[in-house]
Amino acid sequence: MITPAYCLTMARYNAWQNRAMQRAMETLSTEDLTRDRGAFFGSILGTVNHILWADQTWLSRLSDMPKPQGGIPESPNICPTLPVWSAERFRMDGRFILWAEALRALDLTGDLSWYSGVLKGDVKMPVARVVVHVFNHQTHHRGQVHAMLTAAGATPDATDLFAMPDAGPWP
């Protein structure tokens, strides 16, 4: 289904897009970042916090990284300010890239089991499908952030994967 090269490309894409979002967010006031915009996680900052929390949660299931505190309801509030989020996001992007660089094809086989707070039960799914979900989740919510940034008057960068500089080998 997927390869380690695909995972590394997507981890790099994720980091590139997060840096672009940060630059656009830095052009806005704290009020603009925290204003409820009717999105599922409320504000721009709430949504990027949720993405960060979800990345931490998924990587804790896929590696030896500790699980973050709280659940989905608390996720929009894990970082109170843009500078705190920026530092945590930088660390998380580095962890994702290191994880992807160390992947072997065998690591993407078999099943992953965990307790899902969303489904209120145990889940078992192929690892490769979980990894695809992680990257899809990031992209889905970044699309929401992109729309909110644009509506707030910021000018987000391109989001197309083919526009990413130094993408490395294509899977």
Rank of each mutant, 00 (worst) to 15 (best):
S113Q: 11
M65W: 10
R95K: 11
F96Q: 02
W114C: 01
H50A: 05
G71Q: 11
N136A: 10
L98Y: 11
S29A: 05
A24L: 03
T109P: 08
N136K: 10
L62Y: 08
M125H: 12
R104K: 14
H133S: 08
N49C: 09
F96P: 00
M1Q: 11
Q138G: 08
L98N: 13
H140F: 15
A151N: 07
W16M: 01
T159M: 14
W114G: 00
W53R: 02
R23Q: 14
D111N: 14
D36N: 08
D122E: 15
V134F: 05
G42Q: 08
S113E: 13
T34N: 14
M21F: 15
L108F: 10
K67I: 05
K120H: 14
R129N: 14
Q17G: 12
T155A: 15
P80I: 06
V134S: 02
V145W: 03
Q22I: 07
R142S: 01
T9D: 01
D36A: 04
E26Q: 15
R129D: 14
D107M: 11
T139L: 08
M164Q: 03
S29R: 12
A11V: 00
Y115G: 05
N14E: 04
D64W: 12
P165A: 06
A147K: 11
I44H: 05
A100W: 03
N136V: 01
I72L: 07
E101H: 01
W170H: 13
L8G: 00
P83K: 09
G143A: 08
V123R: 09
W85H: 02
P83V: 07
V134T: 14
V84E: 09
F135C: 06
P83E: 12
A167M: 06
A24Q: 03
T3R: 08
N77W: 15
G42W: 13
I78C: 07
V130H: 12
S113C: 07
L45R: 02
N14Y: 00
A54D: 07
L33D: 01
I97N: 00
A15F: 00
L98Q: 14
D111T: 12
G110V: 12
W58S: 04
F40H: 03
W58M: 09
P76T: 06
V145E: 07
V84L: 13
P66Q: 09
W170Q: 09
E88K: 10
W99D: 02
Q138C: 07
A158V: 15
F90E: 15
Q69M: 11
G46K: 02
H137V: 04
S63I: 03
D157N: 11
D157T: 06
S86T: 10
D107C: 10
A15L: 00
L108A: 03
G70L: 06
G110T: 09
A167G: 07
T34E: 14
F40I: 07
L149K: 01
D166W: 02
Y6G: 00
I2T: 10
R91L: 12
L106N: 14
L149M: 05
T155G: 15
P83W: 14
R95Q: 13
R35G: 02
R89Y: 08
W85D: 01
D36S: 04
N136R: 09
Q22G: 08
V130Y: 15
P126M: 08
R95V: 08
I44Y: 05
W53I: 00
